[in-house]
Write a protein that binds this DNA or RNA. Sequence first.
DNA 1: CCTAGAATCTAGTCAGTGTCTAGAAATGTA
DNA 2: TACATTTCTAGACACTGACTAGATTCTAGG
Lengths: 199, 199
Amino acid sequence: MAQATPRYHHGNLRAELLVSAERKLETTGVQGLSLRELAREIGVSHGAPRQHFPDKQALLDALAVLGLERLGRELGAALGEAEGPFADRLLAFVRAYVRFATAHPAMLALMFARKDRPDAPELLEAGERAFAAPVALIAGAQAAGEIDDADPDRVAMALLATIQGLATIITGGMIGDRSDDVVVSGTVETLLRGLRPTR
Amino acid sequence: MAQATPRYHHGNLRAELLVSAERKLETTGVQGLSLRELAREIGVSHGAPRQHFPDKQALLDALAVLGLERLGRELGAALGEAEGPFADRLLAFVRAYVRFATAHPAMLALMFARKDRPDAPELLEAGERAFAAPVALIAGAQAAGEIDDADPDRVAMALLATIQGLATIITGGMIGDRSDDVVVSGTVETLLRGLRPTR
DNA sequence: CCTAGAATCTAGTCAGTGTCTAGAAATGTA
DNA sequence: TACATTTCTAGACACTGACTAGATTCTAGG
């Protein structure tokens, strides 16, 4: 894995930086991520990363894009395997999302910390691609009459908000000693039934 | 306001640090907040803040508690003024929450960035106090039969997740060119009606 | 009043960081 | 083989958070 005789040209620095950065991100969070430390671990001088990322934010952006792509793959896979009525497939989707969120909380925060970089079109595009499968799920369910045929956009926003909030309060420890899955399935059920009395 | 002849003892450093820190937080975000810069602005040596906050994280924690208290006051005020049926009061509550989130996005992120400090009981307590009013809203509505009498805890978690997610996707710019209020009221309506077909 | 002791602030230091620069080394190409 | 480009090294700079010793001010107790 590590080069026995380190060459002057690393040959794959950009990719290895991203790998190391992601590992560091998951263990220490974004604030414990240092370009110089990454370079040290890889065995390259402290200025080398600059050749591939003009500054630290560029590395973080690239990392966020990778995270969005992986999230998209996982959501797509979960929905691809899901069978049965809409409620089951919805639950499978939300479970997959929350699984990703709890497995990679720092990455999730990075993916949605858009405050710092107002102009990052590739991030927005990556986000849209990541959420293609759930959007299709909603559209399909509405077409099949499985859910209320209200404004699809409205429903999509509500669903997006709910799962994103679920991820935040779970990874933030705000669910106390409740089990993740109970909160997830309970929220999905509430979302399906609505708050209004059923009779 | 500023002391004409600066005294050796500032007399109110801790409070002024928090005020300056909050202003800086709102303009530059948490990563642009420097203890030394705060000390410089206030006109005190770079080591002075250490007397009141053992490290930077302690200042951020104190700031988060202040934010939670203010959020609690605003939510309480909004719900205190709200009249009419449950749906109206719920909407008033969500609007107040989103208003706070969009006005102080960096503060909101700070308040819920609990990953870095696993043990911060005063933060948890402040959080519970901040959400006292909405919890009471749900409990009261259930008692009055205004909403489905499912597990109150389940409903509360779902509602908390939804508003927190709303705040995240709105402040994160993920709602595109939709207006905040349309997304807010649309989500509340979806939450009330549920996703299931009504007939 | 005055005098210890505690609280508060200053000044200096240290390791660490991100960014910038000039130049060396390797790679690709004509 | 010669040359231009990419990639990396090495040194520097300003900045940060944290630690320390000591100066200054405040506060009670006698």
